[in-house]
Design a protein around this nucleic acid. Structure first.
Length: 377
DNA sequence: AATCCGGGGTA
DNA sequence: TACCCAGGATT
């Protein structure tokens, strides 16, 4: 099989160092086959039904580092609650975070909110039409700007993200690490060169869709690929080896103490500060410690300091574990019933009725702890 | 240009 | 558990 396919291109790919760019006929074939496939196989996704700038922008921000199926319900709930940039700009940050709760990367939610306010303030709620203007908004980088400009505004602007990076690296049989500077530069150029003048947004989406559904990370489905015959990695039998990426760093162990303080059917929560994980969300009081096992006396001291009152003793409850990015965090959960409460709590701390916890934006690991305590759902 | 940042889902 | 995800911001 490979012998048959190995043609004149094999010689060209053997030269290292010189970058490959497709000739116009190759580009035309790619576009035609890709778009025909997309017309047949595209998934129906809520932001595709009605690709207004607002909806596409919201979806693209939600889709940053987040899988499509995860985003769908969040997207529908979000645009139902806040159907326009004016609604978003007028909303409280806490409402935005509540709609974002569970989706992860909460900075995106806060930046989306800030950007909506800027769009209203700077342009009266009209969406910008240039790459420069989009890039000036918080939470909008080259990918997101390109996606909104091409998909919602019909501009000829390329995109590059996880799916198209992999697809392009294979199509071109690019052998260097795709994360490197040279790789990024090359792949962006390639994305630009391939982009048709007509319906660039459809082309960009089709590339992502093909990368996602067919040109998958492991075991790409080459037999079902509309551009298999154009693929240089396939021609070389390298489709499983590419793209090359850099070695990933190892994980790091951390330890935390968590305080579950209850009083009169209420639980003490603290709002995570900016710069912390889950910034803006509400969370059980939580502190990083150096060792694997917390000293009960120190936990008690911390709890008294937090509340400004004494007369209760947190007891060790259970340990929980969660993983975030490259950190593996082991939590020791301490629980206490607080009888006498002081009126004044530290900045950012509040008592919340346990019955109302479903209305509070909480980090996922905290939800798990609250469930084990029997305090939530 | 390289590094840092940071939630969640799944094979 | 390893690997991946429609990246952005910072230095």
């Amino acid at each position: 099989m490979p012998e048959i396919r190995r043609g004149q291109n094999a010689a060209a790919s053997a030269q290292e160092g010189s970058l490959w760019f497709p000739a116009p006929p190759w580009r035309q074939r790619l576009r035609r086959r890709l778009l025909a496939w997309y017309a047949r196989c595209a998934r129906q996704l809520p932001w595709r039904d009605e690709p207004t700038p607002y909806r596409v922008w919201i979806s693209e921000v939600m889709l940053q580092q987040t899988q499509v199926q995860t985003v769908v319900p969040y997207f529908e709930r979000f645009v139902a609650a806040l159907p326009s940039v004016h609604h978003l700009a007028a909303a409280e940050e806490e409402e935005v975070l509540r709609l974002w709760q569970g989706l992860g990367y909460y900075r995106r939610g806060r930046q989306l909110h800030q950007a909506a306010r800027e769009i209203v303030r700077r342009w009266g709620g009209e969406f910008p039409q240039t790459l420069q203007q989009w890039l000036s908004l918080p939470g909008v980088g080259r990918y997101t700007a390109g996606a909104v400009l091409s998909i919602a505004l019909g501009k000829r602007v390329p995109i590059l993200e996880a799916n198209t990076k992999r697809l392009l690296a294979r199509l071109a049989a690019y052998q260097q690490p795709v994360e490197g500077a040279a790789g990024q530069r090359y792949l962006w150029q390639l994305a630009q060169v391939l982009l048709p003048r007509k319906a660039p947004g459809t082309f960009n989406q089709a590339m992502m869709e093909l990368g996602s559904l067919v040109c998958r990370p492991q075991s790409p489905q080459c037999a079902q690929c509309p551009v298999e015959a154009l693929c240089r990695a396939r021609e070389l039998g390298l489709e499983q080896q590419l793209p090359r990426s850099n070695a990933r760093p190892r994980w790091e162990q951390r330890h935390e103490v968590v305080l579950a303080l209850r009083s009169r059917g209420q639980v003490l929560l603290q709002q995570r500060e900016r710069g912390e994980w889950w910034a803006g969300l509400w969370d059980l009081p939580r502190k990083q410690i150096a060792s694997a096992r917390a000293e009960s006396a120190q936990v008690a001291g911390w709890a008294r300091e937090l509340l400004g009152v004494a007369g209760f003793v947190p007891r060790r409850c259970f340990t929980a574990q969660y993983t975030v990015t490259r950190f593996r965090v082991r939590q020791q959960v301490f629980q206490a019933e607080v009888a006498n409460r002081r009126a004044k709590l530290p900045e950012g701390a509040r008592w919340f009725p346990i019955r109302r916890l479903d209305q509070v934006p909480l980090p996922s690991p905290t939800q798990k702890v609250l469930r084990r305590l029997g305090w939530w759902e």
